[in-house]
Design a protein around this nucleic acid. Structure first.
Lengths: 324, 324
DNA sequence: ATCGGCTATGTTATCGTCAACACGGATGCT
DNA sequence: AGCATCCGTGTTGACGATAACATAGCCGAT
């Protein structure tokens, strides 16, 4: 920086002002400084700036696992949105113990300006002393809470649309293959399913649960089939994949004997066999909103927001009218 | 830090020595300092340390997309390995233009100590002036190059084992659904396939290419089927998924009429229909090696290494003996 | 007894940047 | 003309940590 200042014939402070786009700089001086920066290949030193300002221009992302395709998509969306806003993104995965507090601790140590928590078991985020780490937080897919911003997909709405569609096809009822109990997203999707059934005055069958993996979907499907289900709404696409296999192996056909709907609209879902009818989540919008809420909070002090991103039912070939 | 020093009755320098586990500290003093740190909830300030030492304890990860399940798995493996080594991980995704140089630029600006590049089009990494950004690099799945460390899966070996297995089943030859031309991993898998066919003295059919997505696999499969293939080796699982659907829709059966093998052993592959025979990559080992190579380079100055991680063929139900 | 060498600790200067304040000159108002 | 303002710029010090050097006390060897 000193070199740049000398070359441009100004003080370091003026260089700093140019870098930070301060309005109090003569256009001509600015041009000279910028030329000097280019010539010398000058790059501001983030650590020094962070030391001085207390801001690192970095946000953290806490995620339990990237094995689920949905989380990966979200990560990508968040990474892109953060880059657009000029923030670096550092990723912290939770250990097998799912220790959110430890993750916050690590992020605090790195001095991130804020963090986004993906889809984490609610109780854990609440339990982790948010204040202790002093992190500004935006939580994705978590119950509303004034202590941090919340951005969510309209899980319940998406679920309702899926169930309504199946009922409209003439199915007597719709069975649900739910996600893990601790998950807010899973709970919301289940709620939407339940509401839609109740609204239609239809019997609500018992829920079977998986852990988001296709293997758990496969395992759970046998229970569903024994109970004579003709329509299954799975809480995500990967579990639906497991169901698809289980149905086929039981000698039944999708959608002839059983209709199946998933949630997420993962890239592969269009090539499942048959191509899966599913509820599309707009991960990019979700990521962008989460980053926007966090960055606004950091830079402008905007209070914790609450936002919902809508879904859309994508009808493919895994659903058909009920047998008459 | 000053507070801690005062409370422990020592100088700041001694606190620093305790934090950095210097051996030149009296055990009793160390205990006193540690107690003071705990009491005061002291946390070292990374930016300040980075300013003084020039090290940020952060590594970057450059990845083109996280849409591919393999990349996501790698990211997770790298994140975990980095955390274990005490490094933060910042993720940079490439824009649609795939501008590696820009990604390096961003990482250099953030002052990472080094970076890992995932599976990127070789020419791009070479083209990007590595020296300019002055980054220490480890590249995953890229041709050997003395300018940076290279860690790779034994793609060719895995491909050979898959092809040999299919030939052993009595198939006259094995068709290949390759990945994008620019990909090193794709080229290696193709090479392994070709070598195995040649070694067996079998005709080498023309390669059909996809872009790693299941949709591209589905599209490519029709060509394969028209050419009368009875055994297909797909360059990854997701493309194999597309093939599975295409075969079924053409009225043929897997593995009755056509055997299909994938590559990666993605979590879902066991629940494809039928469960997919595939070549398992050890993503965790790969990630750990990449991080180890990078961190050793940073901390010890170990010269650029070259390592290969073996694969294993996982036989499931998508392969069967050829019709007689 | 002297001295070199070791151990545990303290002192000083510095990393690159920016906030706060200072200052000279131009402008506008009365 | 006199005074208050504003503008563009410079000067100084501090953010928190550590490297390099300095020091005091102790040991054993000559």
């Amino acid at each position: 920086m000193a070199d740049v200042a000398e070359r441009a014939g100004v003080s370091g402070q003026t260089v700093s002002r140019v870098v930070n786009a301060s309005p109090r700089v003569d256009p001509e001086t600015r041009a000279r400084v910028e030329a000097a920066m280019t010539d010398l290949g000058y790059r501001p030193h983030r650590a020094a700036r962070a030391l001085r300002t207390g801001r690192t221009q970095t946000i953290g992302l806490v995620v339990s696992t990237l094995a689920s395709v949905g989380n990966s998509r979200m990560l990508q969306a968040v990474a892109d949105a953060a880059a657009t806003r000029g923030y670096a993104l550092t990723v912290v995965t939770l250990g097998a113990d799912g220790d959110v507090a430890a993750a916050f601790e690590r992020l605090a140590e790195q001095g991130v300006d804020g963090a986004i928590v993906l889809n984490e078991a609610t109780a854990r985020v609440r339990g982790a002393d948010v204040g202790a780490a002093g992190l500004r937080l935006v939580v994705v897919d978590s119950p509303r809470d004034d202590r941090f911003g919340v951005v969510e997909t309209d899980h319940a709405g998406g679920a309702r649309s899926a169930v309504a569609y199946l009922l409209g096809l003439g199915h007597a009822t719709v069975h649900h293959l739910g996600g893990p109990e601790a998950s807010f997203a899973a709970a919301e999707r289940e709620r939407g399913w339940r509401d839609a059934l109740s609204a239609a005055g239809v019997a609500v069958p018992p829920v079977v649960r998986g852990d988001w993996t296709s293997a758990s979907g496969f395992a759970a499907a046998s229970v569903l089939l024994e109970s004579g289900a003709t329509a299954v709404f799975a809480a995500n696409d990967q579990m639906a994949l497991g169901v698809l296999r289980a149905v086929a192996e039981s000698g039944r056909a999708v959608p002839g004997d059983v209709s199946v709907v998933g949630f997420d609209d993962v890239a592969d879902a269009a090539d499942y066999r048959p191509p899966l009818t599913t509820v599309r989540q707009d991960f990019d919008a979700l990521g962008a909103r989460a980053v926007a809420a966090l960055v606004d909070g950091i830079e402008v002090g905007t209070p914790a927001a609450f936002e919902t991103v809508p879904t859309r039912l994508v009808v493919r070939e895994s659903t058909a009218p009920a047998r008459v």
